[in-house]
Design a protein around this nucleic acid. Structure first.
Lengths: 119, 119
DNA sequence: AACAATTATGTCAAAACTAGCATAACATAA
DNA sequence: TTATGTTATGCTAGTTTTGACATAATTGTT
């Protein structure tokens, strides 16, 4: 059993674990392309997701105009959001699952803790 | 700012606020049809959603074979799940939003608390 | 028995979303 | 200055999800 959890603002934001992990990978690898490859998605998809998030947040998450030969990196805001979000997500997910165990009448089968890539 | 939050098990369950509120309405009104109307969805859609949840849960949520003239009502399991889920959701959402305010670097605009129909 | 309201489902179109192709532009290395 | 890898973006086809239509079957009312 696991949670799907994301944030949405009035303006329609949609920022969830997927985006955060993508930003994390970009940060680690210094390239949208390589991050996309490693996460098994197309560059187009990765780029599109980030763009949409930026659009709604009204803030750049990725440095533009950075080297077009060697990749790209996050903006300060991007890195901050990514880090904080992952922290928040971890906390909330843990609590929510715990509470679910206490409060919900669900026969929980395997209880497969999703392996987290948040190291 | 608000949360999207639902539960998914290994078998693919997908039970979220929408389902819970639907069950709640059915419980209140004693009819899938009337609940669907009131929630602005088609009977077909409402029925389908419930069916899918039942299927994956392996448990009836709605009494079948009940009057086809005057409506239907929840099973014991259905009512229990609905009630507990709404409680759980409320708790988790509140905590998550609070933590978000503390932890996340998001400029929260209107902070429109979603009006809850959980009375 | 005839009628009305509702459950229960199949089906098929429509709409939303996703994936992938194509391509321009550009920066850096050689 | 040519080659390569990447950012950046439009567009289209394919897939998945959702929604509406049709229609039995059933049950209570009159």
């Amino acid at each position: 059993m696991r949670l799907h959890l994301w944030i949405e603002t009035d303006t329609g934001l949609l920022f969830g674990l997927g985006r955060a992990l993508l930003l994390q990978k970009i940060d680690q690898l210094g390239s949208i392309k390589r991050a996309a490859d490693e996460l098994g998605m197309s560059y187009r998809a990765a780029w599109g997701k980030i763009r949409k998030s930026e659009e709604i947040l009204g803030e750049k998450l990725i440095l533009q105009g950075c080297s077009k030969r060697d990749g790209c990196e996050l903006t300060e805001a991007g890195r901050l959001l990514m880090e904080k979000f992952l922290l928040w997500y971890d906390t909330v997910e843990k609590e929510a699952l715990e509470k679910a165990r206490e409060m919900l009448p669900l026969r929980i089968k395997g209880y497969s803790e999703k392996k987290k890539t948040v190291d």
